[in-house]
Simulated scan of single mutants.
Amino acid sequence: MQELLHSLLVGFSLLLIAEGVLPFVRPNLWRELMARAIANSDKSLRMLGAVSMFLGLTLLLLARS
């Protein structure tokens, strides 16, 4: 159980690092991308979320094998 929590903490930490790179390096581009995301429909955002989750799951399964 402790190993699982450690892995989740590492994964979450990497996610936060990846999410923070663009706003740190190019804040104006990040603002523009967020404005575009807000303008998208719920269906488009859900599709983007589904694709992202699928790719993440696929990468996780490849890394675990």
Rank of each mutant, 00 (worst) to 15 (best):
V21P: 06
P27V: 04
L48H: 14
L14T: 02
L9F: 15
G11I: 01
L45Q: 11
I17W: 06
V51E: 03
S41C: 09
L22M: 07
L45S: 11
K43I: 10
L61I: 11
L5P: 00
F24L: 08
L15P: 00
T58H: 09
A50L: 11
G56C: 04
N40W: 15
R46Y: 13
L45H: 09
L33P: 01
I38G: 06
L4M: 10
K43D: 14
A18I: 14
L45G: 06
K43S: 12
L8Q: 10
M53S: 07
N40P: 07
S13R: 09
M34A: 15
A37T: 11
F24T: 08
M34S: 15
L14E: 07
A50E: 05
R26K: 13
L9C: 15
V21F: 14
G56H: 05
A63T: 08
V25Y: 12
A37M: 12
G49P: 03
R26N: 10
V21Y: 10
P27W: 10
Q2E: 13
T58F: 15
V25F: 13
R36P: 02
G11A: 00
R36H: 12
E3H: 02
S7M: 13
L14V: 03
L16A: 10
G20D: 11
S65K: 15
V25G: 02
P27S: 02
A50T: 07
V10M: 06
A37F: 09
M47Y: 09
H6F: 15
A39M: 02
F12S: 11
G20R: 10
L61P: 04
K43V: 14
W30G: 00
P23M: 06
A39S: 09
V10Q: 03
T58V: 07
S7W: 14
W30K: 07
M1H: 11
S65M: 13
F54T: 01
S13P: 04
L15C: 00
R31T: 01
S7A: 15
L15Y: 04
G56F: 11
E3P: 00
L8R: 04
S13Y: 13
L5H: 04
M53P: 03
L16S: 04
